[in-house]
Design a protein around this nucleic acid. Structure first.
Length: 303
DNA sequence: AAGAAAGCCAACCGCCAGCCT
DNA sequence: CAGGCTGGCGGTTGGCTTTCT
């Protein structure tokens, strides 16, 4: 037997809220509060709506001090920095942006910010993306390879490098790039920064709103399932090499998109979820390479 | 000018953790 | 302790708007 529905769907109104409904809900909550029971609220307020719908309407639209309209550059940077640290924890991110809702931020990220970042119009205080003068191509065996090429239409700091020779920490190898066009989709800025190892940024995910990186794109980064990628294959695109990671944490590895976790067994000097939350709560939003990832007790890596 | 495609975002869906009985 | 209920959350959808051809 399936789960009982939270309301009688045949008898509740769905779709956009009318001004009259908004007024009823607002008036009721301002007078009585939600009473800690959203399921019972619509009946008390005289609304033919599902309790969940009321809650969402209140939180995302009606409650006081909601900020609508354009996001500022500062907000952009905070969202990107937090996303690179903790992933799509929209409610946590929203907690750092007074007046913004998780839904707003999620929509903004999916529709605009991801693209803005990709096009290079947003510079981040982020180790993934370095100003052009910090790139040292010649110390990077991938980027100094004669087979390396990049998309010149993008600014240097955001060029997507493609390469037929990669380095796995020990030796060069030729990856199995099935679809040459796919290379541009998953090879993010691979840069050498002040002697540190290169990073990889993946944009996109699997759904219609994601930019790229679908499992059908022919890339040689393969997904074990919707949420996981094969960690070692991902590492192959790191200049640093797998063996260097645990001690020095040289990897600037970020994932932008829907991927939530990467299964692995590496024993990092890890940052816990609590530490991440602490970081957020103290507003120390400067991106730190130590916090590009963390691993939970199940050894699932989060980005 | 009109149809198609892309963008945008409010709202919905379903899962899950935590509380309560 | 088990099971039901609820709120909270992230992912997804669908329809309206805007832009492109």
């Amino acid at each position: 037997m399936g789960r009982a529905p939270c309301c009688d769907k045949a008898n509740v109104k769905r779709g956009p809220w009318s001004p009259e409904e908004d007024a009823k809900l607002k008036e009721y909550i301002e007078k009585h509060g939600s009473g800690g029971n959203w399921i019972a609220l619509p009946q008390k307020a005289g609304l033919r709506r599902c309790g969940k719908s009321c809650r969402l309407r209140w939180l995302n639209y009606l409650r006081p001090n909601i900020k609508h309209g354009e996001f500022t550059d500062d907000e952009d940077r905070i969202i990107c920095t937090l996303f690179s640290n903790i992933g799509s924890r929209w409610s946590i991110i929203a907690g750092q942006l007074p007046g913004r809702t998780d839904n707003d931020i999620k929509n903004y990220w999916n529709t605009k910010l991801k693209k803005k970042l990709l096009m290079g119009s947003l510079m981040l205080p982020n180790p993934f993306i370095r100003p052009p003068n910090h790139i040292n191509y010649h110390q990077n065996p991938i980027l100094s390879s004669p087979t390396c090429s990049y998309s010149s239409s993008l600014p240097p700091s955001l060029r997507y490098y493609t390469n037929n020779t990669c380095y796995n920490g020990t030796s060069n190898f030729t990856p199995n790039l099935v679809n040459p066009q796919a290379q541009d989709q998953f090879l993010g800025p691979m840069q050498n920064y002040q002697g540190k190892e290169s990073g990889l940024i993946m944009f996109g995910g699997h759904d219609q709103q994601a930019a790229s990186c679908s499992s059908s794109d022919g890339s040689n980064i393969t997904y074990n399932n919707k949420d996981q990628v094969d960690y070692e294959q991902l590492m192959m695109f790191s200049n640093g090499g797998i063996n260097e990671i645990p001690d020095q944490k040289p990897m600037n590895l970020g994932m932008f998109g829907n991927h939530q976790s990467i299964g692995n067994t590496l024993d990092y000097n890890m940052s816990s979820l609590e530490e991440i939350k602490q970081l957020i709560s103290t507003n120390n939003l400067t991106c730190n390479t130590n916090l590009n990832y963390f691993v939970d007790e199940n050894k699932t890596m989060y980005y």
